[in-house]
Nucleic acid binder design. Structure first.
Length: 845
RNA sequence: GCCGGGGUGGCGAAAUUGGUGAGACGCGCCUGACUUAAAAUCAGGUGUCCCCCCGUGGGGCGUGCGGGUUCGAAUCCCGCCCCCGGCACCA
């Protein structure tokens, strides 16, 4: 015993004689007449973690395929990126998942709760460059450390299913899936403008561009034209949008995806170029304003621009303008004042045959629509500003209901559906929405237009000119062109190289021994594709591999997928709202069409845990403001840290990390420890009395908070309340029952102490395998309740009354109360409102 | 600007379909017990203002601001202010 407990003056005397120094004479856990063992989280936690590991307590063997799937529960959390170790933000994410895992297991479900590592990617590669060590070494060290942290947290993970995307066993199947996508026409090559960071000498993914700047170094991003690999996910734009109705997801995530897809309905209209006999299509959402189109604008990158000005006096000026625009970065182009240049050409407005000038201007983007617009300055802000700048005509063709003129200067672009057309030939007077359809139909009959839909969504660019990723398994052959690597030759192993520094092309280009291969088709000397895949490809299917992680003849067995998928609960951060979640949804649809899976939406239920902030911004390695859980765990134990991270606030709300509340969790655990050991000496009593009632109320509350509401903070608070009640009178009837209930309910949140005390109370079974406690509805019914009596909505008295009373009796009792009488003031009761089991409100007039 | 989410004590928060006494639970703080002392632990108190026969008393006000609906509003409606997040030349 390393701590001496003082319990009497006699003991004090003995301690004095033994010359025990004062600091050791704690009275901390003093219990009259006994010496109680102190709560030592480190010892307890180590003990149970060893047992869980030895018994593979949370491993989930493959199910019997004949089992009906009703009882399964696939609990999935977004896997960590092993660029460092876990911080308290991760702890929050996985502790929430852990609570759900325990709850579902103990509620009788067959739960799959796996873990893995998103171990390819830029962060590890940059660390490799910085530290001059291979990325493989770095991520594998980190994985070791993260696994140790996870085990030290006591999370109920199936360690038999651990995967990491950088292992050949894993990326072999990422490559295999790529080949399937290629065969299906879903993977294809095209030339595209991509985002390029001159400082890092590398292409950036869209998600690595924040406000037009490189996320890491802050350099302004440029545009570069490269031939790249894409996945054709724009083909699924409508389904990705429409299926959102089926998803039980946070509204903000759905909103972000909706916006990202950016479906807008309108029309494609054809404008004829005078003298050249060319038609140029424009996309517009406002075909009703076509009579107000007073000029026509092409994006500087529009392929027809050179042809329009070829050999004309405007050629030099226009091409010069195009060149100058190209030199601008995205940011500069967006921030600069919009300008343009006249091409000398004219287009014909298909509605009124008007001859309108064609301009080239940088406010029109090649990426959206057709890269050309009809400009209607009267009804579009940007067109209006441009018209003002270059003194181009503004013709009003839409006015508000009951007016002849737009209300004010500038562009009138209200969309209240009450607007009417003016000066628009036979469409004048027609309401705007109607006119949209009528005009498109009218132009359609003359072959000058048709309804059209435009999307913001672009195809997914998956090539990366980087080393640390899954090699794209194709070969470039001078005779055969692009040749996929035969399935039997997979994996295409990522070779070890010395120099990872980005040079504007993949570092793999320099691995001559690796890159030179005979063409699989003709045998001639060919070169491997040197680009690797975006790591979002890995994370688009990792959760399928968990179902069958050691399969070496296929990515996974369909029967196992059919059993486990779709995921019952996905938990992760909001930062993946668009990219990862949209990509994974796309993958599911393609895999479904390939016959590999039987579903089209992988994650019917999504929960976003809130970020943990530190110093005003969210905690992340990149920001350098991480707080490690390690010291806290070492000092206070994993249970205290787990409880605190759950208790700190609503699970989906952002919270600031401050550790001053942690102490309270330790106090609670010590109190729990004390009452449990004290109660352990009591005989089992029948569940009755106030404590038993309170215990059942707590079961109801914690069950609902955990299973339905994900309100882990109030679930913990409810158990605290119960333990507080017990500690007020630990010898009360049913105290033992109440303690056992508290242990059972806190087990998902603080599994170590719960297990230890459960055992110490004499239970031979394992609490983590024990059925979730059931509410006895009879125990929720109280014999009396506190009746609130109001007069005119103000509380005037509270009465303890039997639950059995009728409404009439309640009203009678209320009227008899002297306090109520005083406020009735002899007035006549006009109305009585009775809320059963709660209140009576007397309305006097 | 558009979209999404918020605004409750000194602090983190709770109040689940409008049902009451707002502020559970925890932190902090205050008082007391224990101690030579401190820590720890335990017990009690802690929105705010006022009144008195100072008590297990009575009352007013209070959930960003201003209105409204209702017997009753933190919760619903209208108008505003502020904060956070996402998107933003999207034709």
């Amino acid at each position: 015993m390393d701590v001496v407990l003082v319990q009497s003056e006699f003991d004090a005397l003995v301690l004095d004689l033994l010359e025990v120094p004062w600091p050791l004479r704690t009275r901390g856990f003093f219990v009259p007449g006994d010496v109680m063992e102190r709560y030592e989280p480190q010892a307890i936690e180590e003990k149970w973690q060893r047992i869980w590991a030895d018994e593979r307590a949370f491993s989930t063997p493959d199910p019997d395929p004949n089992d009906p799937p009703d009882g399964k529960y696939y609990m999935l959390e977004m896997l960590p990126y092993p660029s460092g170790t876990l911080h308290v933000g991760h702890v929050r994410n996985y502790t929430q998942g852990d609570v759900v895992t325990h709850f579902q297991r103990r509620s009788g479900r067959y739960v799959l709760r796996p873990m893995g590592y998103d171990s390819f990617g830029l962060n590890a590669e940059n660390a490799a460059i910085r530290e001059r060590r291979p990325p493989k070494l770095i991520v594998e060290e980190n994985i070791e450390a993260i696994r140790a942290q996870m085990q030290r947290m006591g999370w109920a993970i199936d360690w038999d299913r651990e995967i990491a995307s950088h292992t050949p066993e894993m990326y072999r199947w990422t490559q295999w899936l790529f080949l399937k996508f290629f065969e299906a026409g879903q993977a294809f090559r095209k030339e595209a403008h991509v985002k390029w960071c001159a400082n890092d000498q590398t292409v950036l993914a869209n998600e690595q561009v924040i406000d037009g700047r490189c996320e890491r170094c802050g350099a302004v991003v440029e545009s570069k034209n490269l031939e790249q690999w894409f996945f054709r996910y724009t083909a699924y734009a409508d389904e990705l949008l429409d299926n959102m109705a089926l998803l039980d997801w946070p509204e903000r995530v759905l909103a972000m995806q909706r916006h990202w897809i950016g479906r807008s309905e309108g029309a494609e209209l054809l404008f004829r170029i005078e003298d050249l006999d060319i038609d140029i299509p424009v996309f517009t959402t406002r075909p009703d304003t076509i009579f107000g189109a007073t000029f026509f604008v092409l994006a500087p990158e529009h392929p027809l621009v050179p042809k329009l000005v070829e050999g004309t006096p405007h050629e030099t000026e226009v091409l010069d303008y195009v060149r100058r625009t190209a030199a601008h970065t995205f940011v500069e182009r967006e921030e600069k004042e919009k300008d343009g240049v006249f091409t000398g050409r004219f287009a014909t407005n298909p509605a009124n045959e008007a001859r309108i000038p064609i301009w080239v201007a940088d406010y029109v983007l090649m990426e959206y629509g057709s890269g050309a617009i009809m400009a209607v300055p009267a009804h579009d802000e940007r067109d209006y500003e441009f018209a003002r700048r270059y003194d181009l005509p503004v013709t009003t063709v839409v006015v508000p209901a009951g007016a002849d003129e737009p209300p004010e200067q500038g562009a009138f672009s209200e969309h209240t559906d009450n607007e009417r057309l003016v000066d628009s030939a036979q469409f004048s007077g027609m309401p705007s929405p109607e006119a949209k359809k009528a005009i498109v139909e009218w132009l359609g009959q003359r072959g000058r237009g048709r309804p059209a839909v435009s999307y913001r969504l672009r195809d997914w660019l998956i090539s990366r000119q980087r080393y640390w990723g899954t090699p794209i398994p194709v070969v470039h052959c001078p005779s055969c062109g692009i040749v996929p690597v035969p399935e039997n030759d997979l994996p295409v192993l990522l070779p070890e190289i010395d120099d990872y520094t980005p040079k504007g092309k993949s570092p793999l280009e320099a691995a001559e021994d690796w890159i030179r291969v005979p063409c699989p088709r003709c045998g001639e000397e060919a070169r491997r594709e040197a680009d690797t895949m975006d790591t979002f490809v890995d994370s688009s299917w990792y959760f399928l591999r968990y179902c069958d992680p050691r399969n070496d003849s296929a990515p996974f067995d369909r029967a196992l997928i059919d059993y486990w998928l779709p995921v019952d609960q996905y938990i992760g951060g909001i930062e993946h709202a668009v990219m990862h979640l949209l990509y994974a949804r796309y993958f599911a649809k393609v895999l479904n069409e390939l016959g590999l899976v039987g579903f089209r939406e992988p994650f019917p239920r999504l929960f976003n845990h809130g970020w943990v902030h530190m110093g005003g911004t969210k905690m992340s390695k990149t920001k350098g403001n991480v707080v490690s859980p390690d010291d806290y765990v070492r000092e206070l134990g994993a249970d205290a840290v787990r409880l605190y991270i759950l208790f700190i606030g609503p699970a989906d709300a952002e919270v600031d990390w401050q550790d001053d509340g942690l102490e309270g969790m330790t106090r609670f655990l010590r109190r729990l420890w004390r009452v449990a050991l004290e109660v352990g000496e009591l005989p089992d009593t029948p569940a009755e009395g106030p404590l038993a009632h309170k215990a059942h109320e707590t079961i109801a509350k914690v069950t609902d908070d955990t299973g339905r509401r994900f309100a882990f903070n109030t679930a913990v608070a409810a158990v605290m309340e119960l333990v507080n009640d017990i500690s007020r009178d630990p010898r009360a009837t049913s105290a033992r029952f109440a303690v056992e209930t508290a242990l059972s309910l806190i087990q998902p949140s603080a599994p170590h102490i719960a297990e230890e005390l459960w055992q110490r109370l004499g239970h031979a079974d394992r609490l983590w395998e024990a059925p979730w406690p059931q509410v006895d509805p009879a125990m929720l019914v109280r014999e009396t309740f506190e009746l609130v009596v109001q007069v005119n909505g103000r509380v005037r008295d509270r009465l303890q009354v039997p639950t059995s009373l009728s409404e009439e009796e309640l009203v009678e009792l209320a009227k008899e109360s002297p306090k109520v009488q005083a406020h009735l003031d002899g007035g006549k009761i006009r109305q009585t409102i009775v809320v059963p089991r709660k209140l009576v409100n007397l309305v006097v007039g």
